[in-house]
Design a protein around this nucleic acid. Structure first.
Lengths: 223, 223
DNA sequence: ATTACTAGTAGACGAGTAA
DNA sequence: TTTACTCGTCTACTAGTAA
């Protein structure tokens, strides 16, 4: 119920901000706000009281007309929505994911040292990875971004067979961690949905001084 | 009633876009969408039907899970909201106003040729204005922007007295029209709230071939 | 003019459930 | 499991009106 009304409040807040209420007090009657929101004067008045109660605006209730200004808290609420739109519309060239350093089960090391992969890594990623991967467990709110990566083209490392054992295709995406070039291996949809493996020519744990539980930001290039 | 439901629909559309639905079909159940919107599966299902009906999404209703993608029309709806936020947050360095060329009452010409102003124009605006101003009647939805200009610092042209007559201060803002440097005189709050005067070293009507009724875009720098 | 209270109501929502 | 129907409830709105 607390989160429920947010949307309507943010909508009203946005209209006030559009009138210039972010920068200074603006004079706006409940009728005018009602018109902008396609609702009655009474409802707009109520909305204003709710915004006040939420601490998103401050108000100077003059004799004739009220003057309203957004608070920092109100601006912050708007910025949260704005950043959602930025994610939607400005996600053409890169995606940023956040994850916690975790210890994998050693499969990364096993796979990355296979000769059948190594040559392709050098040719297609531009580096020969350190014999071991950095495992990151994504924070929950970033997990959906894996789907974006799965849909974008990325760099395909072809699978191969060796002594009867099949090594599958690996989909990589070039990325950077604190400006160090690396590549992200996106997990298939079925296993460990939330853990990505990072390939890098350096031993990232040592180079960046990472230990389990550290939060890392990865900037991934997408096609 | 048609516009009423838009807000809720756009909200749902935004969540779908955040999941990646702008770029390709994504698999999302009505339950999942409901969770993201803090509502029941039933209501989310209804929302999806409304979005379909509005033509904002298309859907591939598989046996197990539906797949949803935004249409161009849906993307356009999101972009409209996004541009509102851009106006709110990216109005730091310039404002763009639109107005219709109108014929003033000659006061502009009278004022601009006063010696007391002329020297200041050259010093503070960087040009000596043509003896006559271009008058623009702002389109209604841009009138609020004048308030932003009044609040920003601008360039103050000081008033003076001459033979008992008082010439007041004039607040200018440097601007461009089709990349031609000019300055906008913001009207005081009391008179002709919606008409601005443009100062320019050129005769703008001739240079740009403008006649009454033409719509002009002015890009105004703000502090 | 305003803002905002109270009262009555339309419509949005979720529970139950079918397919 | 899904999606989505019907139906009863209750919220959120507007009208009327006071200050």
């Amino acid at each position: 119920m607390e989160e429920e009304m947010d949307d309507k409040l943010v909508l009203a807040l946005r209209k006030i901000a559009l009138m210039g209420g972010m920068h200074d007090y603006i004079s706006i009657s409940s009728r005018e706000l009602g018109e902008m929101l396609a609702m009655s004067q009474q409802s707009a008045s109520k909305r204003i009281l709710e915004l006040l109660n939420e601490g998103w605006i401050v108000r100077d209730l003059g004799a004739r007309r009220q003057r309203i200004k957004l608070t920092d808290k109100g601006i912050e609420s708007l910025r949260r929505e704005y950043s959602e739109y930025q994610k939607i519309f400005e996600t053409r060239d890169h995606i940023i994911i956040h994850g916690e350093v975790v210890t994998g089960m050693g499969e990364g090391q096993y796979y990355v040292t296979q000769e059948g992969y190594q040559d392709q890594f050098l040719a297609k990623l531009g580096f020969k990875p350190y014999e071991g991967t950095l495992n990151l467990r994504l924070i929950p709110q970033d997990i959906y971004k894996l789907d974006i990566l799965r849909r974008s083209s990325g760099t395909l490392i072809k699978g191969f067979e060796k002594s009867g054992r099949t090594f599958g295709d690996v989909l990589c995406h070039l990325a950077t961690i604190q400006n160090i070039d690396c590549a992200v291996v996106v997990p298939t949809r079925s296993h460990y949905e939330d853990v990505v493996e990072i390939l890098c020519k350096n031993h990232l744990r040592r180079t960046l001084g990472l230990v389990d539980g550290d939060l890392v930001e990865v900037r991934i290039s997408i096609a």
